[in-house]
């Protein structure tokens, strides 16, 4: 069997047939910033944080198939600036007040901001009015912090088989909805063990009474940057999938 190869920032990276660029990168220990991507789920391609240049063209690394001879640019100043701007867009379209957020320190949006040395959100804030759903006795949905990544949608549909969540609306009015007559979580069959409750990269889906349990200094991204954490966590998942192929 001949080995397939592409390069990322000049480094030769092997890949297997059917892998996306981000999977090849992760398996090789190269971090490509991402938010809506999680190797456990079907690629989605909406946040655009994983934008890389493939043979000179911008592509989403999480959905674009790896191919022989691709020259991929990833960790360049230009791309990281683009990613920073996209991260800033995600901050200003929602309501992110980190100091009062239970997810702070363990939040991927925040961690990506740190990784990209984002010091402010740059744009005027939209300060949208979004609904908080505290109806369920164990699970909390704070849409102010939702980045519309649809990980909960995918997890609930593909893993839990429950279809508790969906995206609704259009354009800047897009929002997460709950699949029940009242639109409330309490009227769904969601349970705290569901995958959907554990995949939110930000503090939009939270388990009640678990906030601020880990002291500052010991939270996920206090010591390590998201690049390290992500590779540590995702490399085994990608490798396992590779063997399954």
């Amino acid at each position: 069997m001949t080995e397939h190869m592409l390069t990322i920032d000049g480094q030769r990276i092997p890949f297997t047939e059917g892998q996306t660029i981000i999977e090849a990168a992760t398996a090789a220990g190269v971090y490509i910033p991402h938010l809506c991507h999680n190797p456990e789920f079907k690629p989605h391609g909406s946040c655009k944080l994983c934008t890389v240049k493939v043979n000179g063209r911008n592509c989403s690394a999480c959905t674009f198939p790896a191919a022989d001879g691709q020259e991929v640019l990833n960790n360049t100043q230009e791309l990281n600036e683009t990613r920073r701007t996209i991260t800033q867009m995600l901050f200003i379209e929602g309501n992110h007040f980190c100091p009062s957020c239970e997810k702070s320190g363990n939040c991927q949006l925040q961690a990506v901001g740190y990784y990209l040395n984002m010091l402010d959100a740059h744009f005027p804030f939209f300060y949208p009015s979004r609904e908080v759903d505290a109806s369920h006795h164990e699970v909390m949905l704070d849409r102010d912090r939702c980045i519309l990544c649809e990980l909960c949608v995918r997890a609930s549909r593909d893993v839990d088989g429950k279809n508790v969540f969906a995206l609704s609306g259009r354009g800047i009015n897009s929002h997460l909805i709950v699949n029940s007559t009242t639109g409330k979580l309490k009227d769904t069959d969601i349970s705290v063990d569901d995958k959907a409750v554990h995949v939110c990269p930000v503090g939009a889906i939270l388990i009640k009474r678990k906030g601020f349990e880990v002291p500052i200094g010991e939270r996920i991204y206090d010591g390590q940057d998201i690049g390290q954490v992500s590779l540590e966590h995702e490399m085994p998942i990608v490798e396992e999938a590779e063997h399954g192929r």
Partner: peptide
């Protein structure tokens, strides 16, 4: 701009909605 409030309104901005 120093601190969350100067940068994004911070906790006082939670009244914005």
């Amino acid at each position: 701009a120093v601190g969350a409030c100067a940068i994004n309104g911070g906790l006082p901005a939670m009244r914005n909605h």
